[in-house]
Design a protein around this nucleic acid. Structure first.
Lengths: 213, 213
DNA sequence: TGCGACATACTGCTATGGCAGTCGGTCGAG
DNA sequence: CTCGACCGACTGCCATAGCAGTATGTCGCA
């Protein structure tokens, strides 16, 4: 009996992913299996395996016998990220909107309220996490594990990027967009409307980013 | 110097994935790290790591201290697979169609011709592989590695499923659909048309499957 | 001064041995 | 006869040690 799964490999994966997402392992920095193993209090092997999985996810890039480095964000990567999100999430919300239950809409309503509040009070971290949960909630509405896993990967990359972005720039509210139209599209169960709102939401993010890069 | 990357772990991953895709490791069968290591002529550790990655991809499910079993197809899984493909590929082709070059169209034309020939001559294996290449080519047109990786995962699952499907049923051409409308949509650079054609292509596959399950 | 070969120290990678948990059969008690 | 506890054999899992490359600093030579 343990926290979750008893495998040290999985715990290492989760803990390292946590550190990657909150930038304690910052983009561009090199990581060392030995020191990570010491910090986590386990052997080097679970760490090695966890890093291999994280490399498969794209969070780190392992140079075969030189070292492992935390993936940093190039302009092209960020563009690809937004494009991939646009393709996947627009397609997903197109289906999800038509199947939304009243409970789904209510839950989304609450989340959007939280996001709006964080946005109004200029708390970017809270906004980012809530935005992440909103988008993840939308794809989870389909109850499709394949789709959810794929979307979660992209959304985690997105979360990491924005945290990195806000960590260097000063937080200004214009970089935090609303979800009103998206919510409205889902509330009316219109796949086309929701897809259109999602596309606008994502492309707007990309647009205001491009102006500041 | 070696075939590709010199890491035994990667070779094990590729070789095992190959065996999973061509059903030499058939759905439902249990695999043993020791015997696989003996067959591949390497140690147990690279095999263990490769299986962990394959589990992350969903091709095998590892029962923590009981064994590793090749993932079999439930009706729900297949439905999820088609739904995920619909969401992702429709969103992708919507963007890809608008950016298609003449070379892209020509290459797609050739691939579609090959697929049609395989379909006419009732060679399901050739059809499946070409269909895989067609769909992968479409998402690769965007040059987006994030999107390509996500789509490739789904398409590999799709390939494995259909091979499993045709391995038990007798091949009959009605289960092999054409790509004419999809190609036409891309040729005219119409995102909406291409998306519509893709959606029809995928939902038709799902439809004829549901009738035979 | 510049350059090429070499030694060294660093990294991740792999092999091996042994550990931990789980299942199946067996034996004994009720 | 039935049920429960035990014991053995199986699995994946982990730790340690040593291997294999790579980069870097150093020395000798032109």
């Amino acid at each position: 009996m343990s926290a979750s799964t008893m495998r040290a490999s999985d715990r290492a994966y989760e803990q390292l992913r946590e550190r990657l997402l909150d930038l304690r392992l910052s983009p561009g920095s090199v990581v060392n299996e030995q020191s990570l193993a010491n910090e986590l209090g386990i052997g080097r092997m679970p760490v090695h395996e966890a890093l291999a999985r994280l490399a498969s996810d794209g969070f780190v890039t392992v140079l075969p016998r030189r070292g492992t480095v935390v993936t940093s964000f190039t302009l092209e990567d960020v563009r690809n990220l937004f494009e991939a999100r646009e393709a996947l999430e627009c397609g997903a919300v197109h289906i999800a909107a038509q199947r939304a239950t009243d409970a789904d809409v209510a839950a989304l309503d609450d989340l959007v309220a939280v996001a709006d509040e964080a946005r109004a009070e200029a708390r970017p971290e809270d906004y980012l996490r809530t935005d992440f949960e909103i988008h993840l909630f939308v794809v989870r509405m389909l109850g499709n594990s394949l789709l959810t896993d794929a979307a979660e990967r992209l959304l985690l990359h997105n979360l990491r990027f924005w945290r990195f972005y806000f960590s260097t720039r000063r937080a200004h509210g214009t970089a935090m967009l609303g979800h009103d139209e998206l919510l409205a599209g889902i509330r009316t169960r219109s796949g086309d409307l929701a897809e259109q709102a999602m596309r606008k939401h994502i492309t707007d993010s990309r647009g205001l980013l491009q102006a500041l890069f």
